[in-house]
Amino acid sequence: MNKTNKLAIIPVMLCFFTMGFVDLVGTASNYVKADLHLNDTQSNLFPSLVFFWFLIFSVPTGMLMNKIGRKKTVLLSIIITVLSLLLPLFGESYLLMLLAFSLLGIGNALMQTSLNPLVSTVIKGGNLASTLTFGQFIKAIASFMVPYLAIWGASASIPSFGLGWRVLFPIYMIIGIIATLLLWTTPIEEEAVIVENELPTNNIADEYIACFKLLGIPIVLLSFIGIMCHVGIDVGVNTTAPKICQERLGMTLNEAAVATSLYFLFRTIGCLTGSFFLRVMKTQTFFIISVTMMALSMIGLYFGTSKLVLYTAIALVGYGNSNVFSIVFAQALQCVPTKKNEVSGLMIMGLFGGTVFPLLMGYVSDALHRQAGAILVMAVGVAYLFTYIRKLA
């Protein structure tokens, strides 16, 4: 890396921290469920709504990057994220929270689509998978902090200015503002967009069609589905782990919220150690280990009735799922190196799995009147990831 790129890695990693704000939706949805007396289907609408916008905005963001650049797109995404964190300060009505989480989803869709390719610009020939994994480690720190900030805010022993658990929103909003200013003032030299074997066009429809045609490349399509499963499981555990602890162990919501932190703790450890293992171990071997841990976790979550078994299962899926995104994303980018922006848009569109899985999980759980239904839905995603192993070198 040159001098500029060495300095640029600092604000870029702070942007990864900002990216982690999206994971507050799991904790927040459980608190809103308790405050507004919602059922699983209604409360799971919050994470589903957040990730719905990945379906709508991911591909257009890839096209936007071609026009205004990756850095400016990341800046726009953080500004939208900061606005989403501002709204809950004015109340927690159902409609207000739906609007706030919609903006959070839109901002995160833009950020995830543009930030990962920006890393490839900053690193310049570095190990992309391991660097993305380190970024996910930074992101996981923000996710890990969410339940503790909510519990801290809900405690009567500290002044929360009438916000209660919602005190986490202004804290993250301030960090988002700092990230915006730091990235804005850091020069990053981006390479010119290369358009290969295509005629110039100003037709947006043609650009859409050309982008979606990339799904005709088998590895791109399979990676897209793989990311859907990864995010579905991630959001699913984030949302469902506290509910399982309440159902099986009779915990209160504040006590059960620790389960979410446990998940993010091991996801954080997984990202940190994964950035090392991906340098010294074959990617395929590490992926096999990761998915096997996730499979064991599904068994533990389905049958477990003790704190030890459930917490062990949550830790296993946290570690196992921590590196799946980086491996699958890097595999897709490296297979189509001249279409990084477009492939990034398609891969981030796969985060729509965060909409599909919670909706199905909420529906099946309500139908069975137990959280085992949610675990069955996540297990389907784990089964698919086993089929992706043979696509890795």
Rank of each mutant, 00 (worst) to 15 (best):
G300R: 00
C271S: 14
V122R: 02
R370G: 07
K33M: 11
A154Q: 13
K340Y: 04
M294R: 03
R70N: 02
P218E: 12
Q331V: 09
G105M: 09
K124A: 09
L103E: 11
L360G: 14
F57H: 03
P159S: 13
L333C: 03
L64W: 08
Q42M: 06
L215F: 12
P88R: 00
L149C: 07
L376E: 15
L38V: 06
Y388W: 09
S275E: 11
R267Y: 07
L7M: 13
F303H: 06
F264G: 05
L24Y: 08
F212V: 10
M97A: 09
V237Y: 06
L45F: 12
F137N: 03
F325Q: 10
I389W: 03
G176V: 08
E342M: 13
S48P: 06
T387K: 00
L301H: 11
S130P: 00
V317I: 15
G135H: 10
W165D: 00
I299G: 05
K33P: 02
T41R: 01
N39M: 03
G381D: 06
L351W: 01
L36Y: 07
Y148Q: 12
S297V: 07
G69C: 05
F57G: 10
P60S: 08
F386E: 12
I227S: 05
F161E: 05
I227F: 04
N66A: 13
L110S: 04
E207L: 09
M228L: 15
F266A: 08
L38R: 01
P11L: 03
T292L: 14
T81G: 07
I106M: 09
L376Y: 10
R267W: 04
I177G: 02
L14H: 09
S48T: 13
S261Q: 12
L98I: 13
C271E: 08
T121G: 00
T305D: 14
A142H: 08
K67N: 05
L36K: 02
T186C: 08
S114V: 06
K33H: 01
G373T: 12
I123Q: 04
G373H: 12
T113Y: 03
L265K: 05
S77D: 14
T73F: 03
L301C: 08
G318W: 11
V280G: 00
V235E: 12
L249R: 11
L85Q: 08
P159F: 10
M298V: 10
N202R: 04
G381V: 04
K391W: 06
T18E: 11
F134G: 01
F46S: 11
I141L: 13
K282M: 01
F224Q: 13
I177H: 01
G20W: 06
L360H: 02
Y208G: 03
M347V: 05
A313E: 14
S143M: 07
A315V: 05
P358R: 10
I177E: 06
L104W: 06
L316E: 13
F161H: 11
E92D: 15
E196H: 11
P170E: 14
L359H: 07
V336A: 13
V119S: 04
A179N: 07
N238C: 02
E189D: 15
E189R: 05
N254P: 02
F51V: 12
G232P: 02
L75M: 13
P218T: 05
L89V: 15
D23M: 09
A367V: 11
E92Y: 09
A129F: 06
V32R: 02
I178W: 03
F161Q: 09
L392H: 06
A156I: 07
M97I: 15
E196V: 15
G354D: 14
S114L: 05
S48K: 02
E92A: 08
